[in-house]
């Protein structure tokens, strides 16, 4: 398989995941803003900060309000991780590596691109937003379905999964970190009803609210939520789950290519570290520091993957 094709499929799935995450982020932001009218603009601010897109936003918009942020996250060309930019990049990569994709996967990406392009031709009104977000999530579920249902379980598949989990882990960590940014200005909120509803929204933004309640009987507390999003290996968006899957996919590449890659070793070590981590220790160390370290580690694994599999010259 060409190194460039490995890069292509890896990035295609990173972008698809990013597209979906942007939609989720917006959904969470929207809920925060309608449930807490007092701190509206500040909360939008934290949404942008968590996604590392605040500087570009500030360059292009004067006011941080719901309409502007929605537009920025959904369809702004200046925003490289907007839904539209991501899906465009995903399709570009899909076209580049068409020869390693099944017809179904290619066509589903092609379809999501044309549908979203059409859907996001004009700014989305507040009323139409929930439906738009649903469509985005459903469309990307379709691509995922095609991947699972039609692609061979070989190196191509592993690269697709690696892209997904690297992006997803990074995203969950950032969303958790968003809480840190919201909390920062007002320590007095801790433990208050505002605080609890913020945590609830974080669960919602990674589609984990429902399952958290199944498991915890509606016992919403920061420690429990963090434990769930960081360490619970059953939750497909938790940091532990992503990390574990990355080392699994790298393990499968190692046996496929009959070679032990440095990226596999790094990822295995890191996933063991997460596996043995206790949530109390995370808080002792400081949640923010823990998350920054996590993001840095994922970046390092990603860079090592690029090198190990000759993505670039």
């Amino acid at each position: 398989m060409l190194g460039r094709n490995a890069a292509g499929i890896y990035w295609m799935f990173r972008y698809l995941e990013r597209c979906e995450n942007s939609a989720r982020l917006l959904r969470a932001g929207l809920r925060i803003s309608i449930t807490q009218s007092d701190y509206g603009s500040q909360d939008w601010d934290s949404v942008l900060t968590a996604a590392s897109i605040k500087p570009i936003f500030d360059k292009n918009y004067s006011e941080c309000n719901s309409a502007n942020v929605t537009n920025f996250i959904l369809r702004d060309k200046e925003n490289p991780s907007s839904v539209l930019s991501s899906v465009k990049q995903a399709r570009l990569n899909a076209r580049m590596i068409r020869t390693v994709l099944t017809k179904e996967v290619f066509e589903s990406v092609n379809e999501i691109y044309f549908n979203l392009k059409d859907l996001l031709r004009r700014p989305v009104t507040e009323a139409a937003l929930p439906k738009t977000l649903d469509t985005i999530q459903r469309q990307s579920a379709l691509v995922r379905g095609c991947l699972h249902g039609t692609m061979l379980r070989n190196d191509v598949y592993d690269f697709a999964r690696l892209g997904t989990f690297i992006e997803r882990g990074d995203n969950t960590a950032r969303i958790l970190d968003m809480k840190y940014h919201i909390l920062l200005p007002a320590v007095s909120y801790v433990g208050s009803s505002v605080d609890i509803s913020q945590w609830e929204n974080i669960l919602r933004s990674v589609s984990a609210y429902q399952s958290y309640r199944w498991l915890n009987e509606n016992e919403l507390n920061p420690l429990g939520i963090c434990n769930y999003l960081i360490l619970d290996s059953r939750l497909p968006r938790s940091l532990n789950f992503c990390s574990k899957n990355i080392s699994n996919n790298l393990n499968s590449l190692s046996s496929f290519y009959i070679n032990t890659f440095p990226s596999f070793e790094i990822s295995l070590e890191f996933s063991r570290y997460l596996e043995n981590m206790l949530i109390e220790n995370v808080f002792k160390k400081g949640l923010h520091e823990f998350l920054l370290n996590f993001i840095a580690k994922f970046n390092a694994i990603s860079a090592q993957i690029e090198k190990d599999f000759r993505f670039y010259k």
Binding site: M1, L2, G3, R4, A6, D155, Y257, N259, F309, R310, K313
Partner: peptide
Amino acid sequence: VAMRTTQG
């Protein structure tokens, strides 16, 4: 003339 694959 050679192409760059994941394995060289």
